[in-house]
Amino acid sequence: MRARLFAMATALGLMFAGAGFTQVAHASGDAAELPDHEWKHTGMFGTFDRAELHRGFQVFQEVCASCHSLEFIAFRNLVEIGYSEEQIKAIAAEYEVEDGPDAEGDMFMRPARSYDYFPDPFANPQAARASNGGALPPDLSLMVKARDGGVDYLYALLTGYEEEAPEGFELVEGMSYNHYFRGNQIAMPEPLYEEAVEYADGTEPTLEQLAHDVSVFLAWAAEPEMEFRKKTGLKVLIFIAIFTALIYIIKRRIWARLH
């Protein structure tokens, strides 16, 4: 009986794992293999490092936000990464959002409040394309979930630029060469470089540090529920494990009556 139960659990697990394995088959395109990078937030017990998140947010604000939107994140969400309500009010007030119509029927601009979402840097996709050589900078709130390789891909992309395309590679005017982008030709010019940002906490802003921090910030933006989800999951798994063990003992006792 125990063997069968084990077989059943294995069958369930294997089918699930196998189902996922089949999907990996097309994950790699023609781009280079992603390098290994250490993260604190991955794995079963991983959590976001608050200092990394804050630095990453600074990189987002000072670099990414000039072209990319973050449409699913409101200023109030920054509470979750350790900013106080006062700090958030101050951060929001640095941005202008459109509101209205007022009593006269006119739209007007006002400083953003905590409940506002991060404003889009462009009025519409057409304006965004016009300012970016025809390419549309994608929204970043789900970027980490929307690319095969996730946060590893993001880090690799940000550090994977090459000033000159390799010999024989035809680079279209205005495009950049990147080892990890599909087709190796990317419309986004190299966004990060050493000392692109002066960190408020004094951390040395190397390219790797900047790319790491902003990747962590965007991983949070994509999955703000992640820490709570994992913590809840642990409780749920422990509960189910104990419940199942007890039920199994009861089952053995009940079935013993038959023999």
Binding site: D148, K230, T244
Partner: peptide, 24 residues
């Protein structure tokens, strides 16, 4: 007993690998 085993497997995916079976 089977229900417990199934929920355990399901919970692993829901809480730790929620997008493993999805398409990015």
């Amino acid at each position: 007993v089977g229900l417990g085993v199934m929920l355990f497997v399901l919970a692993i995916f829901v809480f730790y690998l929620p997008n493993y079976l999805g398409e990015t």
